[in-house]
Write a protein that binds this DNA or RNA. Structure first.
Lengths: 110, 110
DNA sequence: GACAGATATTCGCACATGGGAATATCTGTA
DNA sequence: TACAGATATTCCCATGTGCGAATATCTGTC
């Protein structure tokens, strides 16, 4: 494959991952995986100011990770692809294993 | 689950994802998935200065995403968990689908 | 100890990111 | 048009991130 093209793909790949690299955005994605919601519904569910939600949703939208559909005055956001949640779940598993190893180590040491 | 505990877990989850949110680190992880390598081997393979590699490897190490094992003067890094690559592959698939949709749309429009 | 190779760290800088506050831009309705 | 609700954007600030350059810290060998 062309080296420059590969660089661009890795860049886009990293940007998608960057979409996941914030606790609030992770919460948003899991919440949207449960069901599509409007901005205000998300704001209530996640106890987060609406402008903050809008900014995070813009980031996720630009990366193609959520979809936005207008219904009257509301805009309903939805998870664009369930594989995003599968990826998050995998990484959460890795985190869990890593933590349990560390605490096992911590126990062994103390 | 305790709300504060959940916040901390989401924070760690986001930090792992942050480990993926850089093109060079993605290249490092894929390269290590192929085979464990020393820092200089990685530097040669990825055409990246050694100090840059060391800094990225530190980030991945701190998040438990790679392991480091000393062998003489060399330190061999390895992928800590194959699920990290599985997650990356899933996201790369999502990226691919998103791009092909966009270019299909671009064709349809033009 | 002296030296060379391998790896890690520090410094300085340019740039991106997240958030609160305020405001602007819609949309539907009277 | 006026108004209220929903969503998006902007400004400002504090903080984080990546990198080049230089330097420091190992490790093995003589």
């Amino acid at each position: 494959m062309d080296k420059e093209l590969l660089r661009q793909i890795n860049q886009l790949h990293a940007e998608i991952c960057g979409g996941l690299s914030d606790p609030k955005r992770i919460a948003i994605l899991y919440s949207l995986a449960d069901k599509p919601q409007s901005v205000n519904e998300l704001a209530a569910a996640l106890e987060t100011p609406q402008p903050t939600l809008s900014r995070h949703l813009k980031i996720l939208r630009e990366r193609g990770m959520v979809t936005a559909e207008r219904d009257g005055a509301n805009i309903y956001y939805a998870l664009a692809d369930k594989r995003i949640i599968k990826a998050l779940d995998l990484l959460r598993e890795v985190l869990g294993d890593h933590l349990s190893k560390r605490s096992a180590l911590a126990e062994a040491i103390s």
